[in-house]
Simulated assay, not measured.
Amino acid sequence: NVHGTKLSHVKPHGALYLEAVENQITAKAIAKGIMSLDPDLYFVALAGKKGATMRRMGEQLGLKVVYEAFPDRAYTPEGTLVSRKQPGAVISDPDEVAKRALDMAKGFVTAVDGTKIELFVQTLCVHGDNIGAVNLVKNIRQMLEANDIKVKPMGKG
């Protein structure tokens, strides 16, 4: 509890996140760190088959794991994020991002080659360095609510 707030979740960032997706030792170390800090914290992990290692390590240690997807990022057919070094890896069109968020809430994402990848998604991440990120989030919320999908803070139902 710092400055009158309480931490609710932990999400590894950037390269550490990508390493935890691929590496069981890294995923387990992160999960152990969360457990030692506060076992009531949520562990945010990649949705879909590729996130299984992260999720399994958290769940084995008894953490509450939240499944995450990225509507403003392109996905490979394998279910990972397209490298930011590739053109089209970051999606900035508000309508496209909102449509992708709706698809994710419905249980899938379309990869760059048109493959539909099944995902069980509980939380969405929009990158703050994306052009117009605030507007992307507003559009996502409007799209979800217009389709009777409730948006709630993590841990609230």
Rank of each mutant, 00 (worst) to 15 (best):
T76L: 04
S92Q: 13
T76K: 06
Q86T: 15
A89I: 14
T115D: 01
F120T: 15
L119I: 12
D103L: 07
D103E: 15
E68H: 07
S83W: 11
H127N: 00
V126Y: 03
Q122N: 12
L63V: 13
K116T: 08
R73D: 04
L124Y: 01
D72S: 08
S92E: 15
T115C: 08
F70A: 02
E78R: 11
E78H: 12
V97I: 06
Q122E: 15
T123I: 05
D103P: 12
H127G: 06
R100S: 12
L124E: 01
L102F: 03
R73F: 04
G79I: 03
A74Q: 10
K99R: 14
P94R: 11
L81E: 05
T123W: 00
A105S: 10
A98T: 12
K85S: 15
K99F: 09
L119T: 13
V121E: 04
D95C: 06
G79R: 00
L124C: 09
L81R: 07
T110S: 11
K106V: 11
G114T: 09
D113H: 05
V112A: 11
E96M: 10
F70Q: 03
E118A: 14
S92G: 10
L81H: 07
Y67M: 13
D93M: 01
E78L: 05
A101K: 01
K116Q: 15
K64E: 14
G62V: 00
K64M: 14
E96I: 14
D113Y: 05
L102A: 11
V112D: 08
L124W: 02
K64P: 08
V97A: 05
V112Q: 12
E68T: 08
L63G: 11
P71M: 00
D93Q: 12
V121D: 04
S83L: 05
V97Q: 00
L102N: 05
E78T: 11
T80M: 13
V121S: 03
I117W: 02
V112I: 15
K99P: 11
I117Y: 03
S92R: 12
P77C: 06
T110D: 03
P87C: 01
G114H: 09
A69S: 13
I117D: 00
D103Q: 14
V109L: 01
D72T: 09
P94S: 01
L124M: 08
V66P: 07
T115V: 14
P94T: 02
G128T: 14
A101G: 06
P87T: 08
A101Y: 03
F120P: 10
K106W: 13
Q122I: 05
T123N: 06
V109F: 05
P71L: 00
A98S: 10
Q122M: 03
G88C: 06
V97E: 03
